[in-house]
Design a binder for these strands. Structure first.
Length: 893
RNA sequence: GGGUUCGUAGCUCAGCUGGGAUGAGCGCAUGCUUGACGUGCAUGAGGUCUGCGGUUCGAUCCCGCACGGACCCACCA
């Protein structure tokens, strides 16, 4: 590797080269090592059909930061990667592809369809993986898994059979959500409620008289948003407490069109306040009505085919589409004089989260997981803190779900997925659940067995992910060593789909929880705070960003300044800023390398030189503090705060101050020892800072680190810096801060006085405090190199300083610049007057606090002491400024 | 309907458990061919911390109400 670094940082080429190096070196790979502490993370498996979007990029970045950090801390770190078969979305994609070729899925048949799907998976399944690599993800690719690979299939079957045997899985006739386009049932979590403009049709059914004739005067009026469901009505309900309808229970109404007589029932479910207080009951097509129907023993009449057309129970409407039928029914009711009115109405309609088709609730025989028992340990785990949710507010969402848990519908009428390991005996109807295909029916002994055609909900296999990927159901060394995993990183959106289901599945199958911490991060939004979505077209392609600015810049942008849990806005300017930072550290490194002499020994990691200048101690101490703070933040998973601190340190303290302070020592003649000390600090602080930054910006830090220290194989496997007591120099930290303040003060004066930058000005520093004078005497050089001083003198009083000299007061000292061309004394007076006013304000505030007895009594002693010191400093500055002001005023006269 | 969360500089956001907002980045203004970097350096302007009450010696921070956003859960015909 050349020590010649390019003038501007260019990630192109470099990132791919380094990634290849890491992969080849096997640094991503982990094997069980008894006695060594481990750190395990499983990736939320992205869909095989997927392409990387910003949400993934954020998710993977957070995980990679944790993983790289822990790896550097010496943990045997495994980041388990893989992809998810994504039952519905893959199946939809393949079906559409076939459609374009004019092939119908059902004509093609199950076998051929699956062949096609696997072919598709082979062809495109690798896309997302290669994109993850572009990001720099340090996954153990040798262990890559797929939710439908051999091992996962076995795991799914095993889990299903065990849960069936324990009675947690059952097959039942229940009302479910049906997507007529995808032709499958859906779990409640897959239903998305969308507000839609619709109508409320007010309809009346005539009552049946005592003698069985249809009343022409008595009607029950109600409203509905789905008139077509009347075909399946089997009752009309009123609230038992409703005075208006007293005595109607037991009577019947005529269901028009179908001419069926249906009873009036009383049920608490009916809200008397809403509309007329009458509800039509369609048990087969509404979850609430289903419950009412159960309570009153009502008939369930299914009126829909799977494609949402009306079935034979719809009589003359059979075969008609649901919405066409709606129109026709309304029209007929109108003709019958039973339509009372139509009202515009906006309401929430359940849609399929994948295809946004309006779902139809209908009754089907499906497989369910009984949740009442399974959920208990999952609740307990979070309640008792065995699983920690970050941020804390996630708990409420979690319990909100667990408290209202309903049984989980796990069967899907699809082909792509894990086929349910259940067989039905055609002869005796026995259902057999088995790990392997049974030969004969254990009940009747015949062999007419057919396997359930359905597959399992994708999340059934994802729920096993933390242990199935490590070898379960076998008892493998990997499983024993790496499980339970440590941290799970994911977005809010799949807390119910995935996180909770992993927790109870793991507890059920493994007897333990799958991880101890879950980090929920927010959504990546666009510059206006909108969700990035395909339909809005506001999505930013992470790969395009990587191509333009580099993966490091993208990663930094995603985590900086934004803490986990809240949403973030993503836009180009922010990435540019990150890119600029990459360029900054690149150039700082370039500067340091350029200043190394031919054949000079590399200094990183060498013992600290015995003698050091104050600024050396300052930067070492500041870095040391940074190590402590950044690590503490990371331990609290405050990744954004941690990296912000590293960023500020590198850019401001290291580049803008330390490097500038040290330049004269690098060029100066006859100061080899001093130069060497400076070079030591430059190389070590740079190298250390690269380590702290490495989890966030893996590529550039690797390149710099390996150039800085040619013997190091990789920063990836170097050790994470630790706080060192011998590098704590609080005194030097304070003195350099004082110097910085003085330099800033002088620069400010020069600027406001319009002193040409090329003009060198003599500076007199006046301080009554010998300790302060010593600081300035030691830092003499800085006034010349950083503040444009032609010379600087340090003295106890203002002896010999011109009355009209410009002054600036800082805590402990006043600096004078005898600018002979200070013509505008009035302006200077004005400036000082303003300053004096500010100090007055400070003193008033300070006095108020220090004379406040309750403050003195209740505040911490350090706070009080601090306040006293502040007051003293302000008093001193105040007297200095007012003194100078007097002189100026006098000199003007 | 129930719940969560946010409202700080022109913009996007920090502000760690109540004690001076020397807040950050971008943008803006002024100056800078200083031997790493103009993807840079220096200096500066800009905030009644959404409003109103309350608790407190003291509130951007705690409580209540209002206004304005974001989100989650449930779903009523």
């Amino acid at each position: 590797m050349s020590k010649e670094l390019a003038k501007a940082y260019d990630p192109k080429g470099l990132e791919d080269r380094l990634y290849e190096k890491w992969e080849k070196s096997g640094y991503f790979h982990a094997e069980p090592e008894e006695g060594r502490k481990k750190f395990t993370v499983v990736i939320p498996p992205p869909n095989v059909t997927g392409i990387l979007h910003m949400g993934h990029a954020f998710d993977e970045t957070v995980q990679d930061i944790l993983v790289r950090w822990k790896r550097m801390q010496g943990y045997n770190t495994l980041w388990q990667p893989g992809t998810d078969h994504a039952s519905i979305s893959t199946e939809v994609r393949i079906t559409n592809e076939l459609k374009e070729e004019g092939i119908d899925k059902h004509e093609l048949g199950r076998e051929k369809f699956l062949e096609r799907a696997w072919e598709w998976k082979r062809k495109y399944g690798g896309t997302i993986v290669s994109q993850l690599k572009k990001l720099g993800s340090s996954c153990d690719w040798e262990r890559e898994r797929f939710t439908m690979d051999e091992g996962c299939n076995r795991a799914v079957t095993e889990a299903f059979v065990r849960m069936y045997e324990k009675g947690y899985i059952y097959k039942g006739n229940r009302i479910i959500n049906w997507c007529p386009v995808c032709n499958t049932s859906l779990s409640d979590a897959e239903v998305l409620y969308e507000e839609q403009q619709g109508h409320l049709w007010h309809i009346k059914y005539p009552l049946i008289n005592e003698d069985g004739s249809v009343s022409s005067t008595e009607f029950l009026e109600f409203a509905t948003t789905r008139p077509e469901t009347m075909l399946g009505d089997t009752a009309v309900a009123v609230n038992p407490a409703d005075e208006r309808y007293k005595g109607l229970a037991g009577r019947k109404v005529l269901l028009p069109i179908v001419n069926r007589q249906i009873p009036v029932v009383e049920d608490e479910y009916v809200d008397m306040e809403f509309g007329t207080g009458v509800v039509k009951i369609t048990p087969a097509h509404d979850p609430n009505d289903f419950e009412v129907g159960k309570r009153h023993g009502l008939e369930e009449i299914n009126i829909l085919n799977d494609d949402a057309t009306i079935n034979e129970n719809g009589g003359k409407y059979a075969g008609m589409d649901r919405y066409e039928c709606r129109k026709a029914i309304v029209k007929e009711l109108e003709e019958l004089g039973l339509l009372v009115g139509i009202e515009d109405y906006s309401h929430n309609v359940g849609t399929h989260d994948r295809c946004h088709t309006t779902v139809e609730p209908l009754i089907k025989k499906q497989w369910f997981v009984r949740m009442d028992e399974l959920i208990k340990p999952a609740v307990k785990a979070v309640q008792e803190g065995e699983i920690r949710l970050v941020p804390d507010s996630a708990k409420k969402r979690y319990f909100n779900w667990t408290d209202n848990i309903k049984d989980w519908c796990i069967s899907r009428q699809l082909w792509w997925g894990h086929r349910i390991p259940a067989w039905t005996c055609e002869d005796c109807g026995e259902i057999i659940v088995s790990r392997t295909a049974p030969e004969v029916c254990p009940k009747c002994g015949k062999n007419h067995l057919t396997q359930d055609p359905d597959v399992l909900d994708t999340w059934f296999s994802s729920a096993l992910w933390p242990f199935e990927t490590l070898g379960w159901p076998d008892d493998t060394p990997d499983l024993r060593y790496f499980f339970p995993t440590d941290v799970l990183v994911t977005g809010w959106d799949i807390i119910f789909f995935w996180v909770i289901r992993m927790i109870f599945s793991s507890y059920e199958q493994m007897g333990t929880y799958p991880f101890h911490t879950v980090i929920f991060h927010g959504l990546v939004r666009d510059s206006q705070g909108r969700k990035m979505s395909k339909s809005l077209g506001n999505g930013i392609d992470p790969l395009e960003v990587i191509g333009q600015y580099g993966a490091d810049a993208l990663r930094l942008t995603l985590v900086t300044g934004n803490d986990m849990g809240s949403d973030m806005r993503f836009y180009r300017e922010r990435v540019e800023n990150s890119r600029n930072f990459a360029n900054k550290i690149w150039n700082a490194s370039r500067f340091i390398m350029m200043n190394r002499k031919e054949g000079e020994e590399e200094r990183f990691g060498k013992p600290v030189p015995a003698s050091l200048e104050p600024e050396d101690k300052w930067i070492l101490s500041r870095f040391n503090r940074l190590v402590k703070e950044a690590t503490e933040n990371m331990e609290r998973y405050e990744l954004g705060i941690a990296v912000q601190k590293v960023y500020d340190f590198i850019w401001e303290e290291f580049c803008d101050w330390y490097i500038e302070m040290v330049k004269p020592r690098l060029y100066g003649e006859g100061m080899e020892a001093s130069r060497d000390q400076a070079m030591y600090c430059l190389e070590n602080v740079l190298g250390g800072a690269m380590k702290l930054l490495h989890p966030y910006m893996p590529f550039i830090t690797e390149e710099i680190f390996c150039t800085l220290q040619s013997g190091e194989p990789s920063i990836m496997i170097s050790s994470w810096p630790e706080f060192r007591n011998d590098l704590d120099f609080p005194e030097e930290e304070r003195s350099i801060e004082t110097i910085k303040e003085a330099v800033r003060g002088i620069r400010g004066v020069r600027n406001s006085m319009n002193v040409a930058p090329s003009k060198r000005v003599p500076i007199v520093i006046v301080s009554p405090d010998p300790a302060v004078r010593k600081i300035f005497a030691d830092g003499k050089l800085f006034f010349e190199s950083l503040a444009g001083a032609s010379s600087s003198a340090c003295q106890e009083d203002r002896e010999g300083v011109s009355d009209s000299a410009v002054s600036v007061s800082i805590p402990g000292a006043t600096l004078f610049m005898p600018l002979e061309d200070l013509v505008d004394i009035d302006a200077e007076i004005e400036r000082l007057t303003k300053e004096l006013k500010r100090l007055d304000g400070e003193l008033i505030r300070s006095d108020k606090m220090l004379s406040n007895e309750k403050f003195l009594a209740s505040a911490k002693p350090e706070k009080v002491q601090e306040e006293k010191e502040k007051k003293a400093r302000y008093e001193q500055m105040h007297s200095q400024v007012s003194e100078q002001l007097d002189r100026l005023k006098k000199s003007r006269q």
